[in-house]
Design a protein around this nucleic acid. Structure first.
Lengths: 162, 162
DNA sequence: GATGAAAAAATTTGCGG
DNA sequence: CCGCAAATTTTTTCATC
């Protein structure tokens, strides 16, 4: 609404001090850590923690919080990546719209290199993957070819270091 | 570390009712939504919300919470994937250990298909990526070849549907 | 900016349906 | 398994440094 917001969205690299970095690191481990505990840990007052976290939100550095769900107990056994090549570069928006409609597509990247679009899939089992691939993905007319990388395990999973 | 998780994850598909699913969906959007608000939204008492969330944690379905950080304002401009081929399959643990030591490697997958190991990288700029690739990754002796996919944008980013 | 203390809100527990 | 209500903790505000 006012122009100050636009300026913030340009969001260049911000000044972040040590306390900010500590808070971000802690909240990356557990977004519900009580501010009182963070205050004790980093030897400031709970009010300061509160103010800093608010500022980090305002600055667009903290964009939200989420619970992490284990795929296995929810019945998701398969994680895979699919590299997609398009018939024409201009088909990108149309294909993306179709991928967005598939809940199993949890990430999509527009990439340079071997593929035009690169997606991450989570689905229940091999059968579901097979059907998804054949019925939903390879049947998209603008797709020329796909290549599947099946993930057998994910030994590293972490976030960027603030 | 990974193998202990696997044992727990043998945890087959759990009984999840509609309330559980609603709570998981809401907490995926915002892990700090007050239980009182969730209670109102789903027409149960706050205590019930609390009990359900605790059970979902006990069951290993909720594995944690985290804040989401915007890479850009923290100075991370580059996201890319690197497919790695090893000289010998047995080199996997040694290479993984070296990758784990690089903070820019935020995800690693053991995959079938074109590559042996597939990693996701976040780093500050092209120069940093160049140095990382040449000095830290391609110099790992057990690595035979790498292939880089640079991400230009990420139009889809979401989680699995409980 | 940071703080301590007060006010407001949310979490957590135990008892009774 | 649920909900009520009390007890405890946390979050949030604000005047002051």
């Amino acid at each position: 609404m006012d122009h100050q917001n636009e300026v913030q969205e340009v969001a260049q690299q911000q000044r972040i001090d040590n306390l900010d970095r500590n808070l971000l690191n802690a909240l990356q481990q557990d977004a519900r850590t009580p501010y009182a505990e963070l205050a004790k840990r980093f030897e400031v007052s709970p009010a300061t923690v509160h103010v800093r976290v608010e500022k980090l939100k305002q600055a667009g550095i903290i964009t939200g919080t989420q619970v992490l769900l284990a795929p296995r107990p929810l019945g998701y056994q398969i994680c895979c990546f699919i590299g997609i090549n398009l018939k024409a570069a201009g088909d990108y928006p149309a294909v993306l719209a179709k991928l967005e409609a598939l809940p199993e597509v949890i990430e999509a990247y527009y990439t340079t290199g071997h593929y035009s679009i690169f997606i991450k899939i989570m689905c229940r089992n091999i059968d579901a993957l097979h059907r998804l691939l054949v019925d939903q993905i390879q049947s998209i007319e603008q797709i020329q070819s796909t290549e599947t990388l099946l993930s057998l395990s994910q030994p590293i999973a972490r976030q960027i270091q603030p």
